[in-house]
Design a protein around this nucleic acid. Structure first.
Lengths: 226, 226
DNA sequence: CGTCAGGTTGAGCAGGTTCAAATCCAGTGG
DNA sequence: CCACTGGATTTGAACCTGCTCAACCTGACG
């Protein structure tokens, strides 16, 4: 961080930023391209609770969960991150949650302070960071509205959300276990399992193996009340 | 619907004139000082769901709730905002939630696009916006961990949170009804009421009127497991 | 072929909801 | 000043959803 004199004109600022970037400052795309993807084994911890939040992460392949463990041993999974998702910005100074892979994964690691400094000169980077923040908040809100509902609404809502986030449309491969789904939705494994069976019985989903699910959106949406 | 009529106030013009004279854009403090506080009656809507998010708001006095109503009539209250709190930044383009006062209140209204433009030149403003965003996200996370717990943990956690946010330490005046607390915690009025009675019976709180509560933090903390 | 982790299913229990009724309390009009 | 009124709060009792505990099934892997 250097000394920044107050700029009196937006024209000057953007022209300055543009010319500087051409010679020295990297763009968003360049930063992403420069970061080496790092492989993590299944269940590996990427960062722990209370650790300083120095990095931003991107899932290249695989899947990640962020979670916290309560005094009494219950685990709460705040979010799942799939290929293409960014995570690690849910913290200000230290992480309130830990992050672990739920299967073999490749993760991109980006220095946060590099981004925040660049964001002061590059509106594109600033906007991307702000958008990610906004997305994270929107996601938290959506999850809050899920948690006040009944068990069937939660599971139906979860399946619909996963389908929306998957590259494929209606046929999805869940990377997480029933236990993890339960910890995410505030339900027990048994309840989650029963609801999968119920949904199959009424033809709202069909299954090929426990984690390979095909959804009938219309039928499922009858459960997720707004 | 939360339509805001433009008021031409001498305060605004003088603040902007002053800053223009010094050849610099208005600071955060100047923007806040320039905004006129607007009175709202109890239960008045400040903005509605789906409305474009053009403003940022600050509670000067009173209290505000943000909420959404599900198809089946259930109401979910996302958050309460007390005197000094900012709200209205939980949305990107349009509001996902509506905002209403829960008692007579005075609200400050600030144009969002003014702030975002200024933020590009003023690091202080940018940091404040980012901090607010972060705070909102942190609050959503905290609320998520509340909602996966049992009813007694939710109510105890809620009381402790309200006490932390109140100007007074342990003796608090709740502006919201039992119904609103229930809609915030995903519980029914009756359950909330029963837990207030239980907490009083075991001497974790004492009451002077339904909404005036004094807490024994130690006893309450035994209920809110992390 | 055995093992082990993950998943499914069943039976009984308990925490919260629902429905119903009693009580409190602030605001209103006489 | 006091009784009246309507909403908010409290309490009770029956019911139902989701949890607990326990057994069984499935599939991947040595």
């Amino acid at each position: 961080m250097g000394v920044h004199t107050k700029t009196s004109s937006p024209k000057i600022t953007s022209a300055f930023a543009r010319s500087k970037r051409r010679f020295s400052l990297p763009t968003w795309a360049e930063i992403i391209a420069a970061a080496p993807p790092k492989p993590y084994g299944r269940g590996a911890e990427i960062f722990g609770q209370q650790e300083p939040a120095e990095y931003l992460y991107k899932v290249v392949s695989g899947a990640v969960r962020t979670c916290s463990v309560l005094r009494d041993g219950r685990r709460y999974i705040a979010a799942f991150y799939l290929a293409g998702d960014f995570f690690g910005l849910e913290a200000n100074i230290t992480h309130a949650l830990s992050a672990e892979t739920i299967c073999n994964s490749e993760i991109l690691i980006i220095k946060r302070n590099v981004l925040t400094v660049l964001a002061e000169h590059d509106k594109d980077i600033a906007r991307r960071l702000s958008d990610m923040m906004n997305g994270e908040l929107g996601h938290a809100q959506a999850h809050l509205t899920l948690l006040i509902k009944t068990s069937s609404e939660r599971v139906a809502g979860f399946l619909l959300e996963m389908a929306d986030r998957s590259p494929t449309v209606d046929e999805i491969e869940l990377p997480m276990s029933r236990q993890e789904i339960g910890d995410h939705l505030g339900l027990t494994v048994e309840t989650v399992s029963r609801l999968f069976s119920l949904f199959e019985a009424i033809n709202a989903i069909s299954r090929a193996g426990a984690r390979h699910v095909t959804l009938r959106r219309k039928a499922l949406k009858n459960f997720s009340a707004s």
